[in-house]
Design a protein around this nucleic acid. Structure first.
Lengths: 151, 151
DNA sequence: TCATTCCTGATTTCTTTACTAAACACGTAG
DNA sequence: CTACGTGTTTAGTAAAGAAATCAGGAATGA
C-alpha cells in the first residue's frame, strides 16, 4: 500500500512538463527542478513515452513534452505507465481472486479499495495538479483535518 | 499501490478467528482453511499479537483468538500491524513530504489518496467482513459495475 | 562533422517478500 | 513430574523488486 519512488518521480516530471507548454524540456532540467537522479528519470521518461503520455526529440533543441493536453492525462494514467495496474492484490487484479470460508467478502473490500483509489487518481488531471485547482472530491478529502493526522 | 501477500493473509486469518468465537483456534487450522503456508502465518500471527489484535495460548488446547470483539477491529488495524502505515510515499508519510515547483499540489493528492483508503479500510470491521454486511460506503463502491472492470 | 540530447541494455546495490529450519519455552494430560 | 503437543523466537535464504548507475548507441540540428 505504498507509492514507489518511481511513481512519485513520474508524476512530478510530467507535472513539470505540463507547466512548460512551449517546446521541449531537457531531461536534465526536469531532473534538476524536481531533484530526481537523471539516469533513473530517463528510464521513467522512456516508459512514459512507450505508453504515449510523453513525446521526445533528440539532439540540440531536443527534449520531452506532453503528447496530449494536460487536462486529458490523469495521475492514474501516469502511475499505470510506470507501475502497472493500480491496487493489485498479490500481483493479481482483485476481480480475479476468489476467497473461501470466512474471507469470502474480502474480494468486495479490495474492489472497493481499488474503486476509491480510482476516484481520486483518475479524476485528477495534470492540468488540475499544476493549477492547484483540484477536483471537488479530491479537495474535500484533502481538506479534512483528520486526513493530515498520522496513524 | 499493491496489497502484499502478507496483508492479504493477515486479514484472512483474523477473519477466520472472528468467525470462531469459541475458544482458541490452532495455527494449523487457520493455515488449512485459508491455504496459507503455516510457518509464514505464524510470523504474521506474532505481529498481530504484538500489536494487540490477537492473543495466543500454547500447549494442548492452545491456539489463537481475537483480543477484542470483532466489531472493534478494522481491516486497517490488521494491515497496519503487519505492513506499517498505510499509503506511504517513498516510505515516508505524505504529510511529511514537501514538493517544489509545479508539483507543489501533489502532497494534497497523496493525502487524499490516503484519506480515501482510510475511508474504506477503517470503516470495515472484522464483524462486517464475516457477516457480509459491509458498511454502506464500501458496499456502494463495490457495487458499482465499473469497479469490477480491469484497466 | 560535431556537439547535443535522447535511447537502451547491462549491471549493481539494497531492501523486501515469502518462506524454511530448528531450537526453545510453555501448558496440559496422564 | 514428565512427556507431548503446542506456540515462540531466532536465524537464515532464495527470489524478486526498487532504485539507481554505467556505458555506450543513435538521432538531431548547427
Amino acid at each position: 500500500m505504498r507509492v514507489s519512488a518511481k511513481a512519485d518521480y513520474a508524476v512530478r516530471a510530467v507535472a513539470e512538463l505540463a507547466a512548460s507548454p512551449d517546446g521541449p524540456v531537457k531531461g536534465e532540467r526536469l531532473a534538476d527542478s524536481q531533484d530526481i537522479p537523471l539516469q533513473f528519470l530517463e528510464h521513467i521518461l522512456l516508459d512514459l513515452k512507450h505508453s504515449g503520455i510523453v513525446r521526445a526529440r533528440r539532439g540540440a533543441k531536443g527534449g520531452y513534452w506532453l503528447a496530449k493536453p494536460a487536462d486529458e492525462v490523469s495521475i492514474a494514467d501516469v502511475i499505470r505507465a510506470v507501475e502497472g495496474p493500480i491496487a493489485n492484490v498479490q500481483s493479481a487484479p482483485p476481480e480475479s481472486i476468489s476467497y473461501k470460508g470466512s474471507a469470502r467478502e474480502l474480494q468486495n473490500v479490495w474492489i472497493a479499495v481499488r474503486a476509491s483509489l480510482r476516484d481520486v487518481l483518475e479524476s485528477t488531471s495534470l492540468a488540475d495538479l499544476v493549477s492547484g485547482d483540484l477536483p471537488a472530491n479530491v479537495r474535500d478529502l484533502a481538506d479534512d483535518k483528520d486526513a493530515w493526522a498520522p496513524r
